[in-house]
Design a protein around this nucleic acid. Structure first.
Lengths: 122, 122
DNA sequence: GCCTCGTGTTTACATCTGTAATCAAGGAGC
DNA sequence: GCTCCTTGATTACAGATGTAAACACGAGGC
């Protein structure tokens, strides 16, 4: 339900790797990874707070941030969104398209097979 | 390379079904499908024109629009982008997430199986 | 006790998007 | 020929987004 933007997702990635983290833990990573100003990161943290995607605990005069929105939850949202929007809600066309675009490795095919087997079981 | 927004993609869908089409061919479809005002559709057509995603040929005092950006090209952009950004370039996790979220129909599973069989063959 | 610096909060601002209304010019009808 | 309607072009406007600067306040150094 919580929708986050691309830039915000970059901040979440850092918190998904490890939570909680302070502003400058996060900043250390993102200043390098995204070449952002500290100010930008502060803004994004605040927007995420307002959206409820992260929570903050005060420690002295700083905050320690924790991801509330879980990565898997976000992933699920992203996938259904894409598949619905672009592939009419059906997965096969997606896989077909992708495999045309980018040869699937045997491991990928194996993963898909296993997945299907599991899906058929229930 | 040409990036189009969600609303713009809806217009493209109509042109992907059939090209060329006049403004009101397109409008007829979208007024129903999206409950948009004619004015909205005109705006989107213009933005797509400026982006070069469609082209227009004048016929009398109206235009006939044709999709320039191809559907497969767009699909590729949308899916590889997400899969790379979010799923580390592997398609299986995406399918897994989707199927958790939204039960796959037997027909979908069958389609996937057939597809994989085909992929294994070569 | 005052000044400075680190932190969070507020404000800024251009661009993109969704969604339209308004304007202008050329044909169709009278 | 003048008027009105159709159709494209221009303008509008609020909210989201990317990117950041300005501000305010408390803690630490001197």
């Amino acid at each position: 339900m919580v929708a986050i933007s691309d830039a915000e997702a970059q901040v979440m990635e850092v918190l998904w790797e490890r939570s909680p983290q302070s502003t400058d833990d996060i900043a250390l990573v993102l200043v390098k990874r995204q070449d952002w100003q500290l100010a930008t990161i502060k803004t994004l943290l605040n927007r995420l707070l307002n959206k409820g995607a992260i929570s903050a605990v005060q420690e002295g005069r700083r905050y320690s941030y924790t991801a509330v929105l879980q990565r898997t939850e976000w992933l699920a949202g992203q996938s259904t969104d894409l598949i619905d929007r672009v592939f009419g809600g059906r997965v096969a066309p997606l896989v077909a398209h992708f495999s045309q675009q980018r040869k699937l490795k045997p491991a990928d095919i194996a993963a898909l097979k296993a997945l299907i087997k599991a899906l058929e079981r229930d």
